[in-house]
Simulated assay, not measured.
Amino acid sequence: MQAISITTSSNKYEVSVGTGLRLNIGTFLTKQYSSILIVTDSTVAPLYLLDVKNGFENPDKVFETIVPAGEASKSQTVYFDLITKAIEFGLDRQSLIIALGGGMIGDLAGFVASTYMRGIDFIQVPTSILAHDSSVGGKVGINHPEGKNLIGSFYPPQAVIYDVEMLTTLPEQEKRSGYAEIVKHGLISDQAFFTSVIDTNIMSNLTDQLLTEHLVKGINVKATIVEQDEKESNVRKYLNLGHTLGHAIEAELGYGKITHGEAVAIGMLFALRVSESFYKISLPYDQLNEWLQTNDYPLQIEQLDQQSLLQRMKKDKKSTQQKVQMVLLRKIGEPTVEFVEDGFLVQQLDNFFSELVI
């Protein structure tokens, strides 16, 4: 097992990465809780819920609730239903919430924990590759029809327990989704990490050893940034590479039409193109594009209205005073944040979508 310690202004916690960790979750708890509520989804529950529940000495104090799988559950309706469940189960301020699932569950259950009785403890038990990113750093929240993650807070977990055995059951779409965030960590950190990722065919030659290596490297990249900037006032914005357009595409298509990571993959390609034009440089656009095609990322999305995308990008959390702010790259490992003018952005969107094979 590998343990990565994360220390921020509001909390200190460990990310534990290993095999079989789901079977003894109770040993990772640092204090006694009056009750525990496991929040999971309809895909994960039949696979791992019983394993996690059996890892506690007092199962009568362990409750469960299952929400429909998919990004559509990150809504105000499901959030309110979970608050109601917590009240019905008698959770108090000494209770714990466990987020057992991918990024959607981590965001949703974490937001419930952050607001129930003004905040109770929660831990993340990620079951997806994508969640190596979302489970670390303390961002929790739900979506609004007008934009992704517009309702939320910064609320760090007490622990992140990452059992890589649970990743063996992931469908190909979820592998793609998760690896988009790993690619992102490579692009904003160093050439060697990026090269290692794009040299990997995740559909055919991804070994458990290589996956664990990439996950740990990605977590370390995020941990280093989060420790410097917990509340996203400066360098933490770099973690949003590809997300400005990615979030807009998710909202425009309708949440769940493509995965978060698949949308971010398209957003990263766009960010590279904008960076090249903005800074008059050359970046590995072609290498990334080829890797995405090799691994069957859905780049052939329907033509989207550029003005509508622009308006959604203006609602992104980084944007200020109705000006789009994007994470760009001067080179691999050197991210920046720039305001991008509307006219330039629309032209870039038009050129970019005409490049993609529709």
Rank of each mutant, 00 (worst) to 15 (best):
K85S: 07
Q76V: 14
F89V: 15
D92N: 15
R93Y: 02
F80H: 13
E88F: 06
L82C: 07
E88V: 10
L91S: 08
D92P: 01
I87L: 15
D81R: 09
L82W: 12
A72P: 00
Y79G: 10
L96M: 12
Q76T: 10
K85L: 01
E88Q: 15
L100R: 03
I97G: 04
A72V: 10
D81T: 05
F89W: 04
K85T: 14
F89Q: 14
D92L: 08
L91Q: 11
F89A: 11
T84W: 01
E71V: 09
G90R: 10
E88D: 15
I98R: 02
V78A: 13
Q76Y: 09
L96T: 05
V78D: 07
A72H: 12
D92K: 07
S73Q: 05
K74E: 05
F89P: 00
L96F: 13
G90P: 06
I87E: 14
E88Y: 03
S73K: 04
S95H: 07
A86D: 14
D81L: 04
I98Q: 06
L91E: 08
K74T: 05
D81M: 02
A72C: 03
F80L: 12
F80W: 05
E71T: 14
A72W: 00
A99H: 01
T77A: 04
S73V: 02
E88R: 14
S75A: 08
T84M: 09
Q76N: 01
